[in-house]
Design a protein around this nucleic acid. Sequence first.
DNA 1: CCCAACCGAGGATCTTTGAT
DNA 2: ATCAAAGATCCTCGGTTGGG
Length: 463
Amino acid sequence: MTTGGRSGASRVDGTGSSEEHQLDLGSCDVDIDDTITLSNWPLLTGFAKLPPCVHNELKDHFIIAQELDGKTVLAAINGIMDSNAASILKGEGVLYKVPSRDKKNIAFEKSAGLLLGRGGTITYDLGTKKLKKTTGITCVLSVVHEAVSKGVTVTVRDVFYRNRDVFGSKQFTEACIYDVCCLLGCDKASLNLVSFEKGSVIGPLKLKLTNGEVASCSELSGRRIPSEKRLLEVESFDCGDAEFILVVEKQSLFHHLSQMDFHNKQRCIMVTGNGVPDIATRVFLKRLVSETKLPHYALMDPDPDGFMILCVYAYGSANLAFDISGLAVPTLRWLGLWVEDLIWAGIGVTQLKDVTPREEKMLSNLLGNKNLSRFFPRHWSVRFQDIALRGKKASFEILHSKGFDFVSKVFLPALLNKRRNNETVDRERNAVTVEKSLRNSFQKTNRKGVTKNDTDFPARSDT
DNA sequence: CCCAACCGAGGATCTTTGAT
DNA sequence: ATCAAAGATCCTCGGTTGGG
């Protein structure tokens, strides 16, 4: 841990609008201007929360969702409803003052990911424009009150179907739920709201539960990552002989690798969120990383969606900026796939696909987000910009043209070795070299108009 | 084909500001 | 005080992933 050197830093103004903010941590012994790594981030029980001193400093300036027990949630809801009842008796209507989740109210803090500022507040009342949201929030509060009182958990879907006419759509239901989280200052799990179990995990990992039972993740097709609420029942992780954690973008690759027994052969714990990860997967990964201290890598396609998903894992999402209960993993390393890996594997650049207008926009937004992009490792920026400039994307599926077991038996083991050997190399210099070699290879390819088959890629050992 | 998660874009609507 | 333009905010829609 490092101290100080920040005493003169300007403080966040509380409006949530400061882009170049730095926090004065005073006596706090974690300098949050440095990347908080696993070695300087104290281990905590339960969810991998921020260190208390950092949490205390941030909570004055940002909305930080906390785990609340049922009693506190009920008391908060009762308080809000009492206040509304008094307001109605006075002839005024129902109203909620909710911290604005608008993107302009979101700042980026390196140690925690994206954060929701305390500055903006939206008042939802019975006016024509706000009526729908006000009704929606009331319905969510009603369902949550009942669920917490009875000690049962409900899904977003349950909330939607109970008041279908009010909500109209699932997206709107979700927005109302997130507003209630901001209103009460807690996470979704504290409201006894659970999501569909979306993520999966496989590998030599055992989950030790609070009731003494042990759940193994080494089964053939892996194990569903439990909801945030049920994750509380996991007391500790036993990672056995695992050497690293591998985050896989999509289910197809996860399924393929697990079928090929990749996790056992490479001694790794594989996690997937099936595309954009849900909250449970992000909480699970954060906790796994914090408690096992294993190196952690991400396998994402070199396309705008892959970049977006990578950023959601590493920095969090704007939509859930209020909930930083272990959602961002800023220490995540992008293992691949990179375009030069395809060339290395003997795949021609002519096989790359065009980036669609939607993806173009997504990429320019990622790169244009100064709040976030200045924290990208340089080699990420180079590769993001490269895709944007070239207008071409790739995916792991291209590698299947080399045979179905090529990825798991030849390509990924070679890629892991390559990256491990490069880990000590100056990454900045590496990125520049990569940039130059990419330009050269593509220029050659364009000149010749044919596929370029270089490389130092190892010959297949099997056929 | 519909569902469940997530995301961003953009049109619609409301509010604020400034000119007259 | 009125009106138009600009800015802010809300919310629907459509995109990704995968499952049943």
